[in-house]
Computed example of a mutant assay.
Amino acid sequence: MFTAAALVSAPPLLIPELAGGAATETADLRAASVAAAQHLAARARRWTVLGVGGTEAEYGPDTLGTFAGFGADVRVQLGGADPTASPAPAVPLAVLVAGWLRAQADPTVVADAIVLAADTSPVYCADVGAALRSRLDATAEPHGVLVVGDGATTLTAKAPGAFDDRAPEVQRELDAALTAGNLEFLRQLDPVACADLGIEGRAAWQVLAGLFGDDAPRCRTDYQGAPYGVGYHVGTWEL
């Protein structure tokens, strides 16, 4: 049975071994992310991760990955992997971050992951969310969903996507929608406009909207900010 969702972001700097001198600057984001994952683990020890990557793919509990491609061989898993095995190549960042948060929150949690392509249509995202809800509600075991997605990467001149003067206002609207659980706003996010502004979490949030369907979420926001010119949101949504 679906119980709750936690919303987090996926900067590699979330991982202390990758943060280096930026560890202090990202401490609040890290603490909020771990707290949100702990809250989800208290509600459910079985998770489905929703993320965005280069192509659509699914990952099972036996997935083992590494952050070596980001600068440190920090190994993570979704809960059922042989820790002595070789990490799978090219595991999407959203899945790696989910694995790291799972270990910080409760290593007994077992997760699977659904990764959507960045250009997935809103209609397809809604269908994925509705199908996931039906699957989770068909089981008696409490089941949580960890949604991994970043906001605009174009909020400052030094941001990864440079500055786009449209981005601050769009990010403010997105922050408000994620804080209030505004499902209709998320459903109406335009894939092209989001791609222009580097809003990488769009597809995952639209699956989340499909997951809740007609149920208005009760929302708690633990963190909103834009270190390094990227919009990040951390919080929980419950039925």
Rank of each mutant, 00 (worst) to 15 (best):
M1R: 10
F2R: 05
L7Q: 03
P12Y: 04
L13M: 08
P16R: 08
E17A: 15
L18G: 08
A19P: 08
A22T: 04
A23P: 03
A27E: 13
D28T: 07
L29I: 01
R30G: 06
A36F: 07
A44L: 06
A44R: 11
W47G: 10
E58K: 10
Y59F: 15
Y59P: 01
T63M: 11
T63V: 10
T63S: 09
F67P: 02
A68V: 09
A68M: 07
A72D: 12
D73M: 11
V74E: 14
T84F: 12
P89E: 12
A90W: 03
A90S: 13
L93W: 03
V95S: 13
L96C: 08
W100K: 06
P107D: 12
V110R: 15
V110T: 15
A111W: 05
V115T: 10
L116M: 14
A117G: 15
A126F: 00
L132I: 03
S134V: 05
T139V: 12
A140W: 05
A140G: 08
P142T: 13
P142E: 15
V145G: 06
V148H: 11
V148M: 09
A157R: 15
A162L: 14
A162R: 15
F163E: 03
F163A: 05
D164S: 10
E169D: 15
Q171W: 04
A176Y: 06
A177I: 04
N182R: 15
L186C: 04
Q188P: 00
Q188R: 15
Q188M: 09
L189M: 15
P191Y: 06
C194L: 04
L197H: 01
R202C: 02
A204L: 04
V207I: 05
L208T: 12
G210S: 08
L211M: 05
D214Y: 00
A216Y: 00
C219Y: 05
Q224R: 15
G229K: 08
V230K: 05
G231H: 03
G231S: 05
Y232V: 00
V234Q: 08
G235K: 14
E238C: 02
